[in-house]
């Protein structure tokens, strides 16, 4: 009797499992077509030989990776020395994206905290306000930003008119402008996940900390931050990763000297001058770097969650 009942139960759960798999099929198809196939395509392209007018010749070659890391002289016959140009671009991109992430965190965290501590009724209105800029295309927003920041732009006009400065400050075509652009582009991706975790935070914990003689600063550092850490990490990843591969902000606001990986890759596929295998190789290197960073975060997250299970 008991055995019969239990086998009936497991049969039922098997049907559920089957139904679940079928229901997941559309997502698997979408992921397959739009994520896996393009990535595999890029991986294959990165090992092919370039065609001079763009496109590829189907012939295996390590030339793209070789070009990325090594300099073999103008005719390709000198002994290889390490090519720093592209490594430097990568390094600069990481640096820029990192600074933009820190800037977003510095502004995004207080913003998220502010929204999460408003009365429950008006919180959605604040979240809505945060997302409004996203209704306008990113390109247009970045161009308007350039317009705002340029030497004869409204910002300089304003600062000149109130007498804070006597000559316009050059913002466009600097690293700072790029960071500002990245920060502006991705700030909501920092605010929203942090907001979500602060909203779930049990504020009695802050009271308990204050009750146990902790100052506001210590409470923030030792109680609030550890509790909302998943949101902070998610926000940092959501800002850092797209910043790293971004090309709009560096192109429009940074000028030629503040080139980032995104622009480097973009150029390889644009017009006739491109080098598809090289662009694909640079993309693969970028992708593996991002994966490594995500894995480090994921591992840390798992470690932190272990004790709470």
């Amino acid at each position: 009797m008991a055995a019969g009942a239990s086998s009936g139960g497991s049969a039922k759960s098997d049907t559920y499992a089957e139904a679940r798999n079928w229901l997941l099929l559309p997502s698997w198809i979408v992921i397959g077509i739009f994520v896996l196939i393009p990535v595999i395509l890029m991986l294959i392209y990165s090992f092919l030989t370039k065609e001079f007018r763009g496109g590829v010749i189907w012939e295996f070659s390590l030339a793209a990776y070789d070009q990325f890391f090594f300099d073999r002289g103008l005719f390709g016959d000198s002994p290889p020395v390490i090519e720093w140009t592209y490594i430097n671009i990568f390094w600069r991109s990481i640096w820029q994206a990192g600074l933009a992430t820190l800037l977003s965190l510095a502004i995004g965290f207080p913003t998220a905290y502010f929204i999460a501590t408003r009365p429950e009724k008006i919180r959605p209105a604040w979240v809505f306000l945060i997302t409004i800029p996203y209704w306008v295309n990113l390109l247009i927003r970045t161009v308007s930003m350039k317009f705002l920041l340029r030497d004869q732009g409204p910002l300089n006009d304003f600062l000149l008119s109130i007498g804070v400065i006597s000559d316009p400050i050059h913002i466009v075509n600097t690293n700072f402008a790029v960071q500002l652009g990245l920060f502006y582009s991705y700030l909501p991706f920092m605010v929203l996940p942090i907001y979500a975790s602060v909203e779930r935070y049990n504020f009695a914990l802050s009271e308990a900390a204050a009750d146990l003689y902790a100052t506001k600063w210590v409470t923030l550092r030792r109680v609030l931050l550890p509790a909302v850490k998943p949101g902070v990490i998610a926000g940092c990843i959501l800002v850092f990763v797209p910043s790293l591969g971004s090309f709009l902000a560096p192109d429009l606001l940074g000028g030629a000297r503040n080139f980032m990986i995104g622009s480097l890759i973009e150029e390889q596929f644009k017009g006739n001058a491109g080098n598809w295998p090289f662009g694909a190789a640079a993309s693969m290197i970028l992708l593996s770097m991002v994966l490594v960073i995500l894995m480090i975060f994921a591992r840390q997250q798992a470690k932190a969650n272990k004790g709470d299970a």
Binding site: E207, A210, D211, G307
Partner: peptide, 22 residues
Amino acid sequence: LPPHKRPVNTVFQNYALFPHLT
């Protein structure tokens, strides 16, 4: 005095133990 300067301590209704600490 703010709470952190008062020499009184509280046992909270739902305990409010710090979840990330032992």
